[in-house]
Nucleic acid binder design. Sequence first.
DNA 1: CTGAAAGCGCTTACAG
DNA 2: CTGAAAGCGCTTACAG
Lengths: 342, 342
Amino acid sequence: MKHVTIKDIAKLAGVNKSTVSKVINNYSNIPEQTRKKILKIIKENNYYPFESAQRLGRRKSDIIAFVSSRISANFNIDVLMAIEDKARFDTRYGHGITPYSTFYDRNVASQHMRKILYGKKADAVIALAINPDSEILLEYKKAGLPLILIENRMVNAHSVNTDNREGGYMAGEYLLNRGRKRIGLICGWPAKRSKYGYSYVSAERKAGFEQALKQHGVKFDKRYLELTTHYSIEEGIEIVEKFLKKRIKLDAIFCIAGDTTAIGVMQGAKKHGIKIPQDLAVIGYDDSLYAPFLNPSLTTIRQPIDKLGGTVFNLAVDAMNKKINGFKHIEIEPEIIIRESA
Amino acid sequence: MKHVTIKDIAKLAGVNKSTVSKVINNYSNIPEQTRKKILKIIKENNYYPFESAQRLGRRKSDIIAFVSSRISANFNIDVLMAIEDKARFDTRYGHGITPYSTFYDRNVASQHMRKILYGKKADAVIALAINPDSEILLEYKKAGLPLILIENRMVNAHSVNTDNREGGYMAGEYLLNRGRKRIGLICGWPAKRSKYGYSYVSAERKAGFEQALKQHGVKFDKRYLELTTHYSIEEGIEIVEKFLKKRIKLDAIFCIAGDTTAIGVMQGAKKHGIKIPQDLAVIGYDDSLYAPFLNPSLTTIRQPIDKLGGTVFNLAVDAMNKKINGFKHIEIEPEIIIRESA
DNA sequence: CTGAAAGCGCTTACAG
DNA sequence: CTGAAAGCGCTTACAG
């Protein structure tokens, strides 16, 4: 069976394919009658334009690409869905969002980003917790392909973040006000040039946390800091055991790296008979779907993901349509959600 | 800045663009020397073929589409990632998988499936827990576009499932052997022509469960059955409260609808002072990432997702390459994972 | 082994 | 308001 093409529709309607194309693309100067007739024939014949041909003709894709470590990761998928939820009710935009996973590999990330750019796979790119080389940013800039960073901030790209410094500060304040002093920190890699890639958000949250310490006259003990690479439950467990082995007595742990790590911490603590929150207060980050249902339920810093998603989407569409000059950097306020674990 | 095209590469290499194209597509009859030279120039100039043009030229897309209710849903994303994990190490296939979400709406599902078919958006389609009209299946068949159903089984399409009947039977056996007799069931919609769409897996699991009951000489009490539409935590809580309100005393609940519902059930039970597993045993389905970390940890039926993903992916690629005659129906063995909740 | 040519299905100035 | 034509960037028989 041959596919139905624009030519077939034109023939059936007794018009030129230009006219059909204009109907499809909502040109204004088509008389209502022919418009309706053509639409009817399109419907009857189950005609859908071949998108690849449209893209080639238009010289653009109208697609938004979403680059993240792994879309199955908790926060990643939540952000993607928040963006999609906006997208599907927005009349300016009729497409899905194409996800790319880097699998935590910088080279894969670079490859994806160049492939998207030079293969013209998208008209706007959203990158979540990705650290592209600054050369890539220049290449994007030169090509005029809008790039929006989430959980990062760099020159030559847009960015949308929750105020991570504020989030770290909130957690610190809260714990200190409740008399906790020996507070462990589980971070992504806040050091530039680390081989695991730099985590902008961890650095910011840590800075905010340290500011709270300072205000309370508490000195930060470096031994209380542990780093995580995969942000996994397993690593959370291991880190607790590492603290125990080193005989470092903590009265709280702030999981800058997110709720998933916090689940691991609570699991690890339970395994060794440490009571939460009595012996050890735990604060997570993100307020993931499961946080209220853990035992004990998890105190955490919420990033308002819907707002984040909406902001990112609007920025992407505006940038796609060249409605923005220069680069925007937007910050959204986080919120502390107090539950049982701290 | 103009994008680099195949023409530019051809000019720089001093050859015809056909030759460049042949290099890109790994034709065999290109001398090693020119091959290398062209590849070098491609790399130096950051050339990536414009995929839309390739597709138009090839008259095919090489893309696999993945249709599900919402990719953020637990099981959906796990399956998608299992497939992607296979895909990214497979040399036969160089693309990502494009997800489509139906948002639990049958019409959206039909629209997606027709758009993919007639818009030639993919060369193979994987549909997870979707109930397409049988007309759509005929249209796919006629067009020769391979369709693989997961969590469903229909004539005129391939399917890959875990043996759901066996899974339901396992759960029933286990509970009955431990002396539980008043076992509540939380299902998707096992009735054909329900407005929420028919859930093939729920029907199968329920059938397996009833078989176990029968073997033990226990009669199934219809009042013990509750249906869920969104498979959410919230619905799990509500259903527990519904049972309480109706004064239906259960000693176990089997969450055929999955672990997420089971989380809700445990939450609801806790809220009303019902002890798990002493007062109420709970069994979930899927063995999601969080199951071991809940409190109590969740006994559940595991679907071997890696195996499922691999099987589905291989089937998709083989079907895409016309290596399969007729329609295949594959079943994979499930496994009961015993933890604290039952 | 390599090139010239036709074709894929659209869009979009342009002319009328 | 409508059509004819050129063009988008590839691929792929085909001829040599």
